[in-house]
């Protein structure tokens, strides 16, 4: 993971680069030590670890709320020390757990903050605010002129996210954005945010202490242990090959289950054609494809995850399921397919 950071082509595709960064606070606390990694443009990277592991410090080094003691942080290829702090922060959306809405301003005015700082024209600001409110499922006519104190926690954080997105930032920093919400609202906001994220081309850094949230939200995950970056990789890589005992422990005893939760059926299944051509290879002593593709009402979609497929198999006491996409049978998946896929990732990674 610490390969040729300095090559120019590499830098162009990397939005953020940490190069041997150390941060020591004035009271001699070492927050992070010699951390290097790269964040690719347009991806979501989650910093995860226990309290006090330096993940929030690492994030605040990006918008210069903290300055590195040693090493350098590059933003779009430029050392951030050479950039104007205020301009840099206006380029970077910022969402914090405590939300920090301005209680004396309306929801609309809150969202308009950065566009106003950047001197957008009023019409453009108004349109943008309406657009974001509808994106966040907060109808403009109802919510635009409300004050934040009148909103629920979940609604407030929606406004917080909208405010961070307002000026189309290249990068968004999110510090435990959903940490203070109840589990149902949290899941709701996570799902909504994943949808939004799929539509925008923004680089996101996301801090959480919740490994499940990290696995769900991250394209890449950086696992921190007291000032140290212990593993950096995709959720699949980390689940399949935890770097050490700390990571293993942090992921928890249900590592395999978590792996199944992020394994999409699409990647595991055999397409219908392949199945039909070689029905004999479908299952070890189980049902043949022809048998499965007729009549069975239990099926999964390609977007489902492997844990759901397994759960249905156990429920219905079968070893194979149809994969159905928009009423068309597109393939088949068996318990053995899932086992094989898992073994393959573990060995291959």
């Amino acid at each position: 993971m610490n390969d040729t950071t300095d090559s120019p082509t590499q830098e162009r595709s990397n939005m953020i680069t940490f190069d041997n960064v150390t941060k020591v606070y004035p009271d001699d606390t070492v927050a992070i030590e010699n951390i290097s990694f790269e964040v690719e443009r347009g991806t979501t990277t989650v910093f995860v670890g226990p309290s006090g592991c330096g993940k929030t410090t690492t994030m605040t080094l990006v918008n210069r709320l903290e300055e590195p003691t040693e090493g350098a942080v590059y933003y779009d290829g430029t050392d951030i020390q050479e950039l104007n702090t205020v301009e840099l922060r206006r380029d970077i959306g910022y969402v914090i757990q405590e939300i920090g809405l301005f209680d004396h301003m309306t929801v609309g005015e809150n969202i308009a903050t950065v566009p106003e700082l950047r001197g957008w024209e009023q019409d453009r600001i108004d349109d943008r605010v309406d657009e974001l409110l509808s994106l966040m499922d907060l109808p403009s006519e109802t919510y635009r002129d409300q004050y934040p104190t009148a909103l629920s926690g979940g609604q407030q954080q929606r406004v917080g996210v909208a405010r961070a997105l307002a000026a189309d930032p290249d990068v968004i920093l999110m510090d435990e954005p959903f940490g203070a919400l109840d589990p149902i609202t949290r899941t709701e906001l996570q799902d909504e945010f994943l949808e939004i994220q799929a539509r925008i081309d923004t680089t996101i850094l996301f801090v959480t202490h919740d490994i499940n949230e990290a696995l769900k939200m991250g394209d890449k995950i950086a696992i921190f242990d007291v000032g140290e970056l212990v593993q950096y990789g995709t959720p699949q890589e980390i689940l399949a090959n935890p770097a050490n005992d700390f990571v293993k422990q942090f992921i928890g005893a249900d590592r395999t289950l978590k792996e199944l939760q992020i394994t999409r059926i699409e990647d595991v299944m055999r397409s219908d054609e392949a199945g039909r051509e070689t029905p004999a290879t479908a299952v070890d002593g189980g049902a043949g494809v022809s048998e499965i593709s007729t009549g069975s009402s239990v099926h999964v979609s390609p977007d489902d995850t492997a844990d759901i497929a397994l759960s249905r198999m156990i429920e219905t006491d079968t070893e194979a399921l149809q994969v159905v996409d928009d009423d068309d049978v597109v393939g088949v998946v068996t318990e053995q397919d899932i086992r094989d896929y898992r073994t393959a990732t573990e060995v291959g990674a």
Binding site: N63, I96, G100, L117, R163
Partner: peptide, 17 residues
């Protein structure tokens, strides 16, 4: 609230703003 101030600072307001 210091979080409100942190949010404002993080969004690129100057100390005067």
């Amino acid at each position: 609230d210091e979080n409100t101030v942190a949010a404002a600072r993080g969004m690129g307001m100057t100390e005067n703003q």
